[in-house]
């Protein structure tokens, strides 16, 4: 009798642990599918400082109180960057209708601070939407910030009249109004898909 009770308790315990493990391992069971990745737990960001065209610093505080979409690119980029920025412009218009209560901010950070000053970056994004922000800064600061957002980049060949080519991850990073990294969109960045995915992101977790 005692033994039986004990085995039952052990069995029950094992089942509970098993359920516990399963539910821990699968918080994603409720996580939505998007074209990209979405974290079950928002990721806090380490301090960083970038530079704006008006000589101000852009830091963690500038990510608070609104959603922020961040794209890393450079102005000597033939198509990926103008396409991504154009798609963000279209996304912004779309979200004004489908998510009117959400405050939104759009930022482009250069991966080529040697050529792209903060002023050049701001003029570049003005071409798409003057409300967008273009940022540059110290190469080490940009690198550390990009790394936190799983964005990689590097210098490519120099056998071209451009001087040198940059290679970079073609993703759009999404930061929540608490300044936490919550998701990233993979390319292609179709505005309609991103708008649908954003509605999933704001409801999760």
């Amino acid at each position: 009798m005692y033994l039986n009770l004990r085995s039952i308790l052990i069995l029950l315990g094992s089942i509970l642990i098993f359920i516990g493990v399963i539910s821990k391992a699968l918080p994603a069971s409720s996580s939505p599918t998007i074209n990209g990745m979405i974290f079950s737990e928002p990721k806090m960001l380490d301090a960083f400082k970038l530079k704006t065209a008006d000589g101000q610093l852009f830091t963690r505080k500038d990510l608070l109180g609104h959603w922020t979409f961040i794209y890393f690119g450079y102005t000597h980029c033939p198509d990926a960057c103008p396409i991504a920025m154009h798609q963000l412009k279209v996304l912004e218009k779309r979200l004004q209708k489908t998510a009117p209560d959400q405050k939104l901010s759009f930022v482009m950070v250069t991966v080529d601070p040697q050529r792209d000053t903060p002023q050049i970056m701001q003029q570049y994004v003005n071409h798409f939407n003057p409300a967008f922000r273009g940022l540059s800064g110290d190469p080490k600061e940009i690198e550390a910030f990009a790394k936190q957002l799983y964005v990689a980049y590097g210098r490519g060949e120099e056998n071209t009249a451009i001087g040198y080519v940059m290679y970079h991850t073609d993703t759009i990073t999404i930061i929540n109004p608490n300044g936490q990294f919550v998701a990233a969109f993979s390319s292609p960045h179709y505005p309609r898909n991103m708008a649908q995915d954003f509605l999933k992101i704001i409801k999760y977790p």
Binding site: P78, D79, A80, A152, Y153, G154, G156, E157, N159, T160, A161, V165, M166, Y167, H168, T169, D170, S187
Partner: peptide, 20 residues
């Protein structure tokens, strides 16, 4: 423009770039 080159899009380690 000053120069015209033929380029091809290229992916390297998941990063996007181009080659002359």
């Amino acid at each position: 423009s000053d120069t015209v080159e033929l380029h091809r899009r290229e992916m390297k380690n998941g990063m996007m770039g181009m080659r002359h």
